[in-house]
């Protein structure tokens, strides 16, 4: 069953002025329920613009977005409902915190949905747990948190709305390496546990390769490729041409293949590579 169906999407900034600039150009794709999608692309390729259209923050210049078969702009008055269904976590979301306690800030979205206070409290605790925010932090002022904790609080604020589709625009940018991995695995577990669709925009090929089922590649406002992670990252040459690269481990394995070692292409994680290489060595009788 297809959840999100996008056809010929175009977005032009400052339409009709000398500064006119098309940031997203004839993009079409379909996403099924429960998929984990990655979006990669060079800086300025239109990723943030695309995801802002998906939850109705930007109105497409032309083209349609269908959610469960219904055009999201069919009733412009009810666009707020779409924003609850498609939750968007912005690039650097920590600057949107404003309440006097973290708990209240996380509750902002659910409160806007008009839920009762018991349900709101439940959701605040659950989503804080999902992103790994400790309970005692919930009563602190959001401005007293560290950068990484602020980021988690902001993500929890969107997860608390329990959206069918969760979109994260570079959630790991600016975090320390361990923090990135933890946050990413928390997002992955959230996806696993709830079965929600997740769309992850990221500049880290490693992150995308390790968690995403399918990957969109944006290049100069256009959707260049959309395929499984494995297929995408076996096309290293093409990726390099548009200013991207493959995960380090993939390129190591690719180099081994070039050097004559019979391994399979499109290896995405270190674990898989280790498995493949030991198997090969065993077969050769060298281990």
């Amino acid at each position: 069953m297809s959840l999100l169906n996008v056809r010929d999407l175009v977005y032009t900034y400052s339409l009709g002025s000398p500064l006119e600039h098309t940031a997203v150009d004839s993009v079409s794709f379909t996403i099924k329920k429960g998929e984990f999608i990655g979006i990669i692309g060079h800086t300025g390729s239109g990723k943030s613009t695309l995801v802002q259209m998906l939850n109705g923050l930007l109105k497409p210049t032309s083209g349609t977005i269908e959610l469960d078969g219904v055009n999201i702009w069919a009733k412009p008055k009810e666009i707020r409902r779409i924003r609850f269904q498609v939750g968007l976590v912005f690039q650097y979301p920590e600057y949107q915190l404003f309440e006097d306690t973290v708990a209240k800030d996380i509750a902002f979205g659910p409160t806007n949905m008009g839920l009762d206070s018991e349900e709101i409290e439940n959701r605040v605790y659950r989503s804080a747990e999902f992103v790994g925010l400790k309970r005692e932090l919930l009563e602190k002022s959001p401005f007293d948190l560290s950068g990484g904790e602020k980021r988690r609080a902001a993500i929890a604020g969107v997860i608390a709305m329990d959206p069918d589709i969760l979109i994260l625009d570079e959630p790991c940018a600016g975090l320390d390496p361990v923090g990135r991995d933890i946050l990413l695995s928390q997002i992955y577990h959230y996806h696993r546990e709830r079965g929600n669709t997740v769309i992850l925009v990221s500049h880290s090929m490693e992150d995308v390769a390790s968690v995403c089922d399918r990957v969109m590649v944006m290049n100069r406002a256009r959707l260049e490729m959309f395929d499984t992670s494995q297929n995408i990252f076996s096309r290293g040459e093409e990726l390099r041409e548009i200013g991207l690269r493959v995960p380090q481990i993939t390129s190591i394995v690719d180099n081994l293949i070039e050097a004559g070692v019979p391994l399979s292409k499109g290896v995405l994680t270190v674990d898989k590579a280790v498995l493949d290489i030991t198997e090969y060595l065993k077969k050769e009788g060298r281990l």
Partner: peptide, 13 residues
């Protein structure tokens, strides 16, 4: 503009 968009994404009316 940015902050408004972010709060709208959380259902601010």
């Amino acid at each position: 503009d940015k902050i408004m968009a972010a709060q709208k994404a959380r259902g601010a009316d």
